[in-house]
Amino acid sequence: MYPKQRTGLNEIILCGLLEYRTYYLKPIKWVMKNQNRRKHFLVHKPFQLRYLFYAIALLSTVIIVALTGTHFGIWGSVIQAFSPASMKSNMITAQQIHEYEQARIPKPFPRADSSLRRYEAIELLSAREREVINEIISETDKKNTFLIFLLLLFIGWGSVFVTHKVAGPLFKLKQYLNHVRSGDLTARIKFRKFDEMQDLAPHFNAMTAEFDAAIGKLKKMARETPSHQLSQAIEKELSRFKTTGDSF
């Protein structure tokens, strides 16, 4: 919506630009957007599925380790700490510690009667339970920190290993293309056994071999063909190559 009261050249230009954007640019953008839209998600099924598997395997490992650590760290310790034997032992200790305290209270201070003693012992036991829970959480945190560190190492190593399967061939391809660009047509590319893009290598090598043979042939012509026939022979040989300069 435009402002209702607009006057002057600036406003007119602004309105013109907005109209231009609305009526001309928008459809162009929409067309380009649709052109870039992915129609097929699995363009290289084996490759993409393999990486899907790697990602799932890595995430599953992290989740399993985290869940196992939490289960045995927290719940395992809780179950152990609050087992009947442990609870019984804690109750006796609470009672005994309370009795130690009572035994030390000097004469002028009346000692608690039995019901109050029981209450105080329970209070002590409850404090101990809080201590136990805090200890478990603190211990689990320590263990989890160590586990996370191990997992980070594992994820780091895994990432380097997995990305190397792609980065390795790309690096080799770059080296290979540099050789070719510098004029070394004897260069050939060879990927490792488990590298990705294995199927590209034969195509590249076939292409280089083709150029190698063609240039080799031209070189041979230059050496062996008499000079008055050389130009015609070269032209014939080059005619099978389609180049961007052909129109000139």
């Binding site: 200790t93 609470a94 510690i97 002590l124 404090a127 101990r128 201590e131 200890e135």
Partner: peptide, 14 residues
């Protein structure tokens, strides 16, 4: 007065 024999920290609200 009382410490956790494993960690050396205060125990039993002592």
């Amino acid at each position: 007065h009382f410490l956790d024999p494993k960690t050396g920290k205060r125990i039993w609200n002592s």
